[in-house]
Design a binder for these strands. Structure first.
Lengths: 157, 157
DNA sequence: TTTGCCTTCATACTTTAGTATGATTTTTAA
DNA sequence: TTAAAAATCATACTAAAGTATGAAGGCAAA
């Protein structure tokens, strides 16, 4: 986990650090030549100390900061309480008209044919005709089946 | 961000490293005393080089590994597709029996009274009686209303 | 403009759903 | 064990749902 990105970062730090180190060593060498005259063993000693300790520092820091990776759980609500979206594809596939859908909706709310007729200002027979068409298109026999099927197809909430 | 946890880690690494460094410096000193006799300037030099470079290494590593924080999106489905839990409180509050609930369930699946009767190996009249009780308890007049209400009360999926 | 679809309505009929009432048998809990 | 609740079934009836068929007006696309 978190490997590919860290690889680059790690390499970057190593490279950058190598360059930094080289420059500093040159500076040290220059300073030594200016103010002190010590044998070459000292330079090698100091250089290796610097290299080893910095490597150790980097390694330590990397190791200790490994559990830096933080998992943030982000809740994504996929429930649709109140978020109903009509399946228009199914609607057009089944050739269900707006009026028929309207009737279907009221039907699913538990209204009787007479109540639906009154609500839509049409006759009871009209609703019955709509129902018959609806049942045919949904391939069902009863209004309860129509409701079930329509809900499954997301034609109604 | 990611500050509070890293603070501890950073401090830990610094402290640990300090101890490590001290031990190593002592070892170096001991080695020097054994095999070489150089002036104290060298020791100070080497020590400061080690300290500075390791500090630099740690700082670099920490800085470069800072954007390690990773956001992991975890989807939590709060939708109830397949996750239906019966509301037993409402069930007992309304005094709905197991058999009645069973009938209600089949009703909501679009079955006719006759089909429910056949499925449960009872007579049509029995189902009608169950229905009447059910409608009374749910305070509805039709099966479609019963289904609506029952779904709202989480009595059925 | 004409064809097809939607919407509307009607009549007549069948089927299913729902109501009311009463009764018997199991279960269950006090 | 005994009373209450649950489950069963019946008869008779009313109400609603569903089927079949025909028809007419409106509207939009071909």
């Amino acid at each position: 986990m978190a490997g590919s990105t860290n690889f680059l970062n790690r390499n970057k730090s190593v490279i950058l650090y190598g360059v930094f180190l080289a420059i500093l060593l040159f500076l040290l060498k220059w300073l030594e030549l200016r103010f002190l005259i010590i044998n070459h063993a000292f330079e090698i000693y100091a250089g290796s100390i610097a290299v080893i300790f910095t490597a150790l520092g980097i390694w330590l820091a990397l190791k200790l900061t490994k559990p830096k990776t933080i998992l943030v759980e982000k809740e994504i609500f996929t429930g649709q309480r109140g978020a109903f979206t009509l399946n228009e594809k199914e609607l057009s596939r089944l050739n269900i008209s707006k009026r028929e859908l309207e009737v279907l909706q009221l039907m699913s709310e538990g209204l009787s044919n007479q109540e639906i007729a009154s609500k839509l200002f049409v006759s009871l027979n009209t609703i019955k005709t709509h129902n018959a068409r609806l049942f045919e298109k949904l391939e069902v026999k009863r209004r309860t089946q129509a409701i079930e099927t329509a809900k499954k197809l997301s034609l109604i909430p």
